[in-house]
Structures are given as structure tokens and as C-alpha cells.
Design a protein around this nucleic acid. Structure first.
Lengths: 263, 263
DNA sequence: GAGTGGTCTAGACCACATT
DNA sequence: ATGTGGTCTAGACCACTCA
């Protein structure tokens, strides 16, 4: 026999999945469920509801009740700013909600000098003693934070340059790096999926049960030296991350077994 | 004043972060904490611990106690099978644990014919009535599931072909598609980050507080028609997703403001 | 058998938003 | 004022693993 709190969660989850509890609708109150399942200590009911909260399916809105979560993904497209839009993207714009709904963007920028974390130090191939500059941005749409974006570069490279000004650089910070002799020509993207830290919950105003993607971009100059590491933290409930790929014909000749797309 | 259960969670979280509770170590028992925080109803202590469980930081191992989670990421590299390894990847192989530790791979394959979900239907541009074939794979390393991989193709395309055999196809299913006149030349990758369904928890043997990445690959033939949709579900605690990018020089000329890598 | 966490009972007082 | 969920108390019995 399944525990009561499991049954409560399973029943409600199914009702959410099959549409009988659509997004935005109100769930039964704890008292309702207590009665309905003949149990009751409130804690049993609450345990069941907390499962759904941690799955990101429902949200408690005190003191109104629990509600089925409504989600509206934005498109997070790491390639967006340096690629023309290929035709296959246009095919999907209608799938990816809210892409066109121009809202008011804003961002905070802070610049400081810090000791690099291990993650940053390894990717920038720094020695123990070297310091880095960090450009932290919190990006907002209509006041709502949707993205944390921290860029790290060796202090010796960017010191005194516009890269370190805590304001928007109209021609782009990457252009600044190019003027410093480090044009960015290659990137390695790593995406980690995890639950947020309490700090991230606060800065991104995340609801419970919302995982984040940590997108680490290491960019390289033409001589293969790493120039900059950017760490983007994007909330899982508000984004879809999109990449596009075109087959390299050379590789196809060499590796006919290529299981392209399937792995 | 912060609630007691919050203080318990915050204190333990900090000890995990600063290394005084290293990965694999045992946490104080509920009884210990009950005493230490002067509270005690067990439920208060358990509420605090459950926060950490849902953040993926600790795992209860009945009846031994709670333990700090140990993680060992694998590399999930959607491009791995059709690109030569560029030099910047080699730079990082030492960062990405367990890449070289060849373990015994295995997979289950099931093939069936189904009505497509909305997601699949839209991406394959199918009409209401069309059916699809699905090739479901559960991939394992040393018996442990690490990846669900479901590929969908229009039934009219793959019916009767080797694509539909529920065994490994040595030359690759994409080669089969090429022989059917649909060589795959382009892909669109979408990555969604979310908490797993109970079904996924079961199939991937996920611990609590483990988010998943759902990686949807739509592949296209040379005529831009969609051929196949593959849905990969990868556990967040066991993987890092890696992409690589090389700048398109044409675009650089046209768009000097390109903020490459930083967004 | 002892100790652990898993489940459940039957209450209590509180903060908060809406009525 | 009412009703909601948030926090907490003080117990109970159980299943499981390990010594």
C-alpha cells in the first residue's frame, strides 16, 4: 500500500497532466485534501503537496491556496548575436513562446577585481597568484531578473581598458578585447544542470522546484589562448536553450558511421 | 528571527560549502540536530534536512543517516560523433572527470509505432493523422542508466527499414536514413531544464533533488525538411553538456558588435 | 537489539490577504 | 473576521540494516 502522501501527490499530478487542473488553476486546500483522503494530520497532506512544489508543478500563494504553475519560456540562444538566422529557426519561432514580445530590457553592471575560483582559473590557465577582473551583469525584463551573466578576464589583459567600466559598452566588450589584440574566434560551451544556491534563488527570484542551467563559455583567441570565461545562470522555468548545428562535410566523409543528432 | 529549520539548513549548507562536511561524509542524525538546536519536534529538523535533499546536496540512506552527495559528471557531447576533436577540448579533458574511465556500456532498444506528441508533431511538420515510429533507447554504464534517448521519424519514411529493428545498427541509423534519401545535414538543438517526472526518476534511478536536461534535436535533410526528432533526457547530476563553436568570419564582418560568447 | 530514517497523529499559535 | 498556508510541539508505530 502506497503512503497517503504519495497518493495525494500522484492523484494531483495526474490531474495536472491530463488538464483537469490547468495552469493557473487553484488546487484543493489542505483542509479539503485532509478530508478527502480521510487522513489527517495536516503534515501528511503537506508532505504530499511539497512533492509537487519541489517538482516545480505547483506554487503555494499564501494565503490564497496552492496554484498550478504557469510557465512561459524565453529563448536563450547563445549563438544569437553572431549568426544570421538560419531558415530552420524561423520554422520554430512559433513554437518558442514570447520570442517576439519585446519587453523592456535592463541590466545592472558591476565590475570588480577578485581571486579567480578554481573553475575560472583552470579555464583561463592562470597561475596561482594571478588576479582576474569580473564584470557581473544581472539582466532584467520588465524588472524581472532572468539571467545572471558574469564575465572573467585576466586582470593583466583588461586593466585600464573599457572592459572594466561598469556601464554598457556600446560597441561591445568583445570588440574591446579585439582592440587589445585578442579577437575571439572559438568557444567551448559547458552546460551544467543543478538546483540553485540560495543566493541564486534570491537574485533570480526563483520559485521552489526551479532548477537552473549554468552555462560556462570559454572563449579563445586565434592563437588558442583562453581570453575570457563567462558564466551564465539561467532559470530552468523561464528558458529554453537553443543551439544550431550544420554538418561538417569533411567529417562526414571520414566517419560515415556518424550518428548525427542521435547522440 | 529565522525559522529554526532554515537555520539548520543554512548551517549545514555552509559546512558543506566550506568543506567541513566533505562529499561522502555523514551528517548529524536527526536526533543530534534536534538536541543541538534545542528544538524538537522531529518534523522541524526533518523540514530543514528536506531543504538540502531537494537542493541535491544530501541524500538520506536509511537507516545509516544522511550523507553529503558525491557527484562525478560524465561528459555529454552532442557533437562528439561527427566532429574531430578540436584542440580546445583537449585542454579541458582533465577538467571533465570520468571521461576516460572506459566503463561497460550497454543499451536497451525498443521500437514501436505511436501517435506523436504535439512536440514531435510540430517539429516533424506532420498532419494530424500521421503516425511516427519511435526508437527508444535506455543507455547504461555498468548497469546504471545514464541517458534516455528516444528518436522519432515519420512512419512513412522508415517503415520496413532497418531503422525499425530493435537492435543496434552497426552502420548507424542515420546512415539508414541517408540510404532512404534523407541525409541529415542540419540540426536544431533545444535544451529544457526541469525536474524529472516520476517515470524518469524510475528509469534513470534519480536521487531526490536531481533536475534533468531534456535535449531535443531536430535534424533536417538538405532540402530543409525535418527528418527525425530525438529527445535525450540526461540527469543533471551526472552530466555536463558540451558544445563547441567556431566563429563565422562572414558574420563578424557584418556585425562588429557581436558579443560573442558573452550571450 | 539498537539505532536510523519513514510515516502518521492531533493538536497549537502565527502572519497575511481578502472580505 | 475569516480562511489560508507557515511553523512547531510531542508524541506514536514501522521497516530496515548492522552489530
Amino acid at each position: 500500500m502506497k503512503p497517503i502522501y504519495q497518493r495525494i501527490a500522484d492523484d494531483l499530478r495526474e490531474q495536472i497532466a491530463d488538464g483537469s487542473l490547468p495552469p493557473g488553476s487553484k488546487l484543493p486546500t489542505e483542509a479539503d485534501l485532509r478530508e478527502r483522503y480521510g487522513t489527517s494530520a495536516r503534515s501528511t497532506v503537506r508532505q504530499g503537496l511539497s512533492l509537487l512544489v519541489n517538482e516545480g508543478l505547483i506554487v503555494p500563494q499564501r494565503p490564497k491556496g496552492y496554484f498550478v504553475r504557469e510557465i512561459r519560456p524565453l529563448v536563450y540562444r547563445p549563438q544569437s548575436e553572431f549568426r544570421r538566422k538560419p531558415p530552420e529557426v524561423d520554422i520554430y519561432t512559433h513554437l518558442l513562446a514570447a520570442e517576439g514580445d519585446e519587453r523592456r530590457p535592463a541590466q545592472d553592471i558591476e565590475v570588480s577585481i577578485v581571486e579567480p575560483s578554481d573553475l575560472v582559473r583552470k579555464r583561463l590557465q592562470l597561475t596561482e597568484a594571478e588576479l582576474v577582473a569580473v564584470r557581473r551583469r544581472t539582466r532584467r525584463l520588465d524588472g524581472e531578473a532572468y539571467n545572471l551573466n558574469d564575465s572573467y578576464a585576466p586582470l593583466s589583459l583588461v586593466e585600464g581598458s573599457e572592459w572594466m567600466t561598469p556601464v554598457d559598452v556600446p560597441r561591445g566588450t568583445n570588440q574591446v578585447l579585439a582592440e587589445l589584440g585578442k579577437e575571439l574566434v572559438r568557444a567551448l560551451d559547458e552546460i551544467y544542470v543543478r538546483m540553485p544556491t540560495p543566493e541564486e534563488v534570491r537574485r533570480l527570484q526563483l520559485g521552489p522546484g526551479t532548477p537552473v542551467a549554468e552555462h560556462v563559455v570559454t572563449t579563445f583567441a586565434a592563437d588558442d589562448s583562453p581570453v575570457q570565461v563567462t558564466i551564465n545562470v539561467v532559470p530552468g522555468d523561464r528558458h529554453v536553450i537553443v543551439f544550431e548545428r550544420v554538418k561538417d562535410p569533411q567529417d562526414f566523409e571520414q566517419r560515415p558511421r556518424s550518428n548525427w543528432g542521435a547522440e
